[in-house]
Each structure stands twice: as structure tokens, then as C-alpha cells.
Amino acid sequence: MKKIINDPETVVTDSLRGLAAAHSDLLRVEYDPAVVVRADAPVRGRVAVISGGGSGHEPLHGGFVGQGMLDAAVPGAVFTSPTPDAVQAAVNATTTDAGALLIVKNYTGDVLNFETAGELASADGLDVRSVVIDDDVAVADSTFTAGRRGVGGTVLLEKIAGAAAGRGDRLDDVEAVARKVIGQVRSIGVALTAPTVPHVGEPSFELGPDEIEFGIGIHGEPGRERIPAEPADALVSRMLDALVEDLPFHQGDDVLLFTNSMGGTPLLELYLAHGIAERLLGERGINVRRRLVGPYITSLEMQGISLTLLRLDDELTDLWDSPVNTPALRWGV
């Protein structure tokens, strides 16, 4: 294993110190327990939007802390849920009488620990709600989840819910917008290689030189099937078939298309795949109105991509377009 680290046991803390040094104008980091918080938090009268999960998916979640997105992110160890006390610390650092919304990816540990923290916060008199995102169409269940996994749609949800909070929506309304996104977003991913967790020191699974894992999870979980490697046109078409048929998406729909690198896929290949996806959606009469392309929810150094489609209406489009200023996502400021 070759990685640019010192000690696998301190890799998350060391990375957080670098995040804090690079972006002290946007955020601050607390280390015991580990929490990434907006520099100006708490903001009285504004709903706090909080998310988190295991590290190794950067820039998710800490890279999305800032204006127009998250008030706090809670990083666990690599591919491991943060503990309830860390989530509770994020709530305490950001939440005023306007309340807080917890955005939780559908993994068993995340759901349990965020739920426990929310109950503790509620016992302290805070109005804390949770939404669980489960946008992965690949499988109904996995070793990590009961039901579908939360994957690429999480990025879009955090942006849109954060924008709703930023415009001054009440907690009921921020929660309603978040649930709308969850109902309209779908994702699928593929892997060409496996990630290597630092404290494990070897790849999470083995793929032959001519194999692709179709429907991979963001922790290297098994996908829908293992298929022979195929040209990009055929692979992207296969991915879109799975997405479009699931919601389903229809001719005339307006969508946001998010083409994501799992960490090791170069932009050369990522833009190639995005262009194919736009063309194929156009042939189906599905209108790509907004786009996001890049490594925004990764799986360490895994080579692969994911595609996410969000059905848009005027409200979701306006919230997506609203200004955002975070380490990883920035426009309109």
C-alpha cells in the first residue's frame, strides 16, 4: 500500500487539520469529538443543516460546510459512522431556536447514531428532525443497509436543503424540500478497481483485468452484478437504463445530471462519460437543465463513476442555482 499518510490511526485528524488550515475563512474544526462547523455558526434564526458519515468520501461531507450548504459535518473514521456524541456536538455547535435538520445516508450505523443524537438533542429542548436519503437503485439491501443505500444524491440534497435554510425557510419547510429531493433523485455507480482503506492496507475486493462491478456502493460494497468491461457508450447506456426505469423518468422531464468520479477516475474519462449521458438522455426526450461534474462523493482512490439524476421543478432549480460558498462547491458569490 502506497498512500500519502503518516499513520493510519491519525489519518482523519491529520486531514481535518489540513482542511482547517486551507479554509479558515469558511469553517472551523473541533477535534474532540471531531466536527467541522461553519465559521459563523451558530446563526440565530436560521435552521441548521447537518450531515456526516465515515471519512474517505471527500469532499463529502466536510468540504460542503459553508454558506448555502451545511452548517456542520461530522466525520467518522474511514468508512465508519460517527458516534452519537460527535453528532450531538455538531447539533450543539450550530442549532438555535430555529431547529436543525439532520441529513443521513441510509447505512445502518449512520441511521442509528444520528437518530440517537437527535433524540438526545430533543431531550435538551431542541427541535431536531432527520431525513434519510436512499437514492441508490443498484440493490434493495446490502451488508451496510436495510433498504437502498445513500450515495450521490446526498450532494444534491445537502446543497438544496442548505439553500432553503439559507433563504430563511422554517424547519417544516426545509424538511419538506429535503423530502421532495429524496423522492425525485436516483443514482447508480460502477467500479473498475477497489479502494484500499488505510488501516486495512489491501484492496476491499478483487476485480479481474476485464471486469467491472456494476452497482457498486461508496464503501466498496458489492453491486448488482459483475460484468465484462465494455466501451463507455455501452456502460453509460446500461447505467442510464437502470436510473431512468427506476423512478421512472419520462420524456419531457427536466433533470439535473450529476456525473461523479469515485476518486480515481480522471476528468478526461469523466467528461467523456458525461457527454455520452447528456446525448442519451436527449435521445429519450429528457432535458438536462443543470449539471455537476467532478469528484464530489468518492470512495478513496476507487476508479469508477456514478451517475445521479434529480427531477427538477422551478423551486428545486432556484435552490440549486442560489449562491454557495464552501471548500468544494462555490458559485454566485
Rank of each mutant, 00 (worst) to 15 (best):
L292W: 02
L292S: 06
A277Q: 05
V293D: 01
L280N: 09
A273P: 00
T298S: 14
T265N: 00
L272R: 06
G294R: 01
G304R: 03
E283V: 01
F258C: 08
I305T: 07
L309Y: 12
M262G: 00
L292Y: 02
T259E: 07
L307I: 14
L257D: 12
G275I: 07
G252N: 09
G285Q: 05
L307D: 10
G282D: 13
E278A: 13
G294N: 02
L281W: 03
G264E: 05
D253A: 04
D253M: 06
R291K: 14
T265G: 00
L256F: 07
I297G: 00
R291F: 01
G263H: 02
R279S: 13
G263V: 09
G282Q: 04
G275S: 13
N260F: 09
N287F: 07
V288C: 01
S261D: 09
G304K: 08
E269C: 03
M262H: 02
L280K: 12
Y271E: 05
F258K: 01
L300V: 12
L257G: 10
R279Q: 11
G294A: 04
V293K: 00
E278Q: 13
V255H: 03
P266A: 07
R290N: 08
G304P: 02
L257A: 11
G304I: 13
M302L: 10
V293Q: 01
T259L: 02
R284M: 12
L281F: 04
S306A: 15
L300K: 05
M302Y: 05
N287C: 06
D254K: 10
G263S: 07
V288E: 02
G263A: 06
G252M: 11
G304L: 12
A277T: 11
T259H: 00
L257S: 11
G275C: 04
P295F: 02
L268P: 00
I286V: 07
M302K: 04
L272M: 14
R289I: 15
A277G: 05
Y271F: 15
Y271A: 04
G285E: 04
G263D: 04
Q251C: 12
E301P: 08
G285L: 03
G252R: 07
S299A: 15
T259F: 01
Y271R: 02
N287R: 14
E283W: 00
R291Q: 14
R284W: 09
S299P: 04
D253G: 03
